[in-house]
Design a protein around this nucleic acid. Sequence first.
DNA 1: TAAGACTAACCTACCAGTAGGATGGTTGTC
DNA 2: GACAACCATCCTACTGGTAGGTTAGTCTTA
Lengths: 186, 186
Amino acid sequence: MDRKTEILQLTTKMLQIKGFDSFSYSDLSQEIGISKASIHHHFKRKEDLGLALLLFIKEGTLKRTEHFHDLDTSPWEKLETFFNMNARVVENGTKNCPINALQANVAVISTEMRVILKEIVQLEIDLITSILEDGRKEGQMFFKGKANNHAALVVSTLRGAMQQSRTHGHTFLNQTIEQMKINLKV
Amino acid sequence: MDRKTEILQLTTKMLQIKGFDSFSYSDLSQEIGISKASIHHHFKRKEDLGLALLLFIKEGTLKRTEHFHDLDTSPWEKLETFFNMNARVVENGTKNCPINALQANVAVISTEMRVILKEIVQLEIDLITSILEDGRKEGQMFFKGKANNHAALVVSTLRGAMQQSRTHGHTFLNQTIEQMKINLKV
DNA sequence: TAAGACTAACCTACCAGTAGGATGGTTGTC
DNA sequence: GACAACCATCCTACTGGTAGGTTAGTCTTA
């Protein structure tokens, strides 16, 4: 793995634990074991690092989204996979969801970063929209109103529960996901 | 209004805009128009300020919760008041919900702060639980499973949507609240 | 030999926090 | 009423430390 990717992965971790404004180039350099100036060599300014991070996350989200479309499983299985993937991110309790972390820090990140952040969230909403549409079409899922609106609700709930789990523990997240599933049953 | 309260109110605002680690005593002193040392006089360390802030927020939440119990309105009206109150907090788009901000910063706040933060969230869940129970008992609301679990879901959704509205705008929050209300209709 | 990766040493700006003192109002005592 | 003791509030000036960022130069590899 190249250094740039290594830095981006560590940055993701730092973002999840501390937030964008609360980790430093010094933190990164110490953990990786190279000098602070070396991090600056790869990402001149923290703003550049932030932008690269967002593109890194977006790429990952895009790949996962495409993977979902290729899957030959039922809407229910897809939805559950999506929930499990997200639950795993905050599993050990110390890490926040990167999207949540960035949205909380919206005031201290650049406009460019904000644009990509919005695109990432939209990718997820679109994915859930198509899963919900398929689920309803096949008579496996039930919900009122437009699929798009309900997808926005599902993503909001998941993100909110991931955040609440930081104080209320991981079982809180699992219970909330369970309740969402109960609500979607026909 | 005394200085201490003035500082706490400004701290709440700063927390909402920047996050707990990203505003400084210097920020506070400049906005209020007294010296940095004077802020330290009132709150010796930032940790003390943080703790006082949590107690300040908890007191406010407690008062509001009690106010709800005294209200002689329908469960639906209560729920709507609760939603509107929260929506107003993030209305102009620059401010985050303080609870969200603190949960995102859980790693950089003290254990004492975390305990109170959890209590505040629990107060809200308990309030919504009783509103939902009343609503179902009176045949005005419909939801599956336990009221407590659905309340956790409602609070998570609201907090999540408040956070998402930072990138997706205020209409996103309104639509999500609307979808929640649709789901609760009999 | 040229480019990429890396480094020590440094810069300025800002951070939380402290020392020591000025101001002005309140309270107790004669 | 006058004086002293006090106390909350505020100030200037400072500390040690860390932030993001720069410079000028070395090492390594294709």
